[in-house]
Design a protein around this nucleic acid. Structure first.
Lengths: 199, 199
DNA sequence: ATTATCTATAGATCTATAGATAATGC
DNA sequence: ATTATCTATAGATCTATAGATAATGC
């Protein structure tokens, strides 16, 4: 029954990956350890050799989910128009429909607010990375502290997808995504104009 | 043990009120029927004479929560500068700290996305009311369909509070709220300028 | 000898239902 | 007679732990 240390570490990573997706789909309270472990091909009994508690896994899975989402932004951002490219997939009906692999801030933001400091630390680290990436795109210098324009734009993007998911009417959802995209474009081009970098 | 019909109806309303607050605090999956009923001074056994299921209560409590939040907007909105007044409390550290009585879209938006059509219908109705109220404040005519500017502004407000709650660092939270407020003011004054109503 | 995973289980809690009780409503 | 609420419980599920097993690592 025992497996090698390498295999055990691989299993641990698989559990974190699976949890990062299943938590986004069902919420932290919406799925149990049994189903999380089953998703990784293991049984519930193996859990506590790998993690301290369900909260511990929630923190690690949140970190993993944010990293994965950041990777998507990096991959999508083509050099010509990185913000436009990110907006195109973030503010889309595809993203609205795909909680499992979508942005964890939207999928779990309300849940994260009820969690402990560890889960919030994972979110905070991921959110800071988003802001660092957004800053230069909207005409803000690389700075220690994130800029207000990047923060407002991220808020608009997150809010638009959250609202698009909270309603039944798909036409209304589309309008939230579209309105968000237009607003972000306005805000960002105003920023770049100030720097004399309007395209 | 039996109470009058009037008392029974009062009890029902109390359960809905209590649930609208406790769901915002703990999430739909984070609190059970026993504690919900205890909050209204009843026992769990009385639940199913009043509601079809927990989902049924979730839909009714969501409706109640949105109505209550809309009431707060109406109360806060002074005629001189209604948007400014709403922003002042919505994008505040007080609102960040008070999930229980705060905006249900922020407190339960991620959860609502996982719920059935009834809960989403409650959210949709409430969100449409928010938009109807916002429209005229940002220079949009009263129309059948909500305007894009109001939708973008609501997205920014919701997103800013969601992000402010998902991080540990209070300074970062404040900056999200501040950045959201400034962005909304920019967007709305641009709207009013177009209509020649700049103050 | 150590240990990663398994099966089994403790003890709590969850939603929902059943039957008893006592007050209302006719 | 009806019924709003109560106590009690069914049956499922939850997190966490205990002990068995079998392969690894020394």
């Amino acid at each position: 029954m025992r497996v090698s240390r390498i295999q055990a570490e691989e299993n641990r990573q698989t559990v974190i990956d699976v949890a990062s997706r299943l938590f986004r789909e069902h919420g932290f309270d919406g799925i149990g350890l049994k189903d999380l472990m089953k998703g990784a091909g293991l049984t519930q009994g193996a859990f506590y050799k790998q993690f301290q508690s369900k909260d511990d896994l929630a923190a690690q899975a949140s970190r993993r989910a944010l990293e994965s989402a950041f990777g998507r932004w990096s991959a999508a951002a083509d050099p010509q128009d990185p913000l436009g490219a990110v907006i195109a997939f973030y503010l889309s009906m595809g993203h609205r429909a795909d909680r499992t692999d979508g942005c964890p801030v939207v999928a779990l933001g309300s849940d994260a607010a009820r969690q402990g400091a560890d889960v919030k630390a994972s979110f905070e680290a991921g959110i800071r990375k988003y802001l660092e990436m957004l800053g230069p795109w909207v005409g803000e210098a690389d700075a220690e502290e994130p800029g207000g324009k990047a923060m407002a734009i991220l808020s608009t993007m997150v809010g638009a997808v959250l609202l698009a998911r909270a309603v039944n009417d798909e036409r209304l959802s589309k309008r939230f995504l579209q309105a968000g995209a237009e607003s972000v474009q306005r805000e960002s081009s105003a920023g770049r104009a100030k720097q004399g970098r309007r395209k």
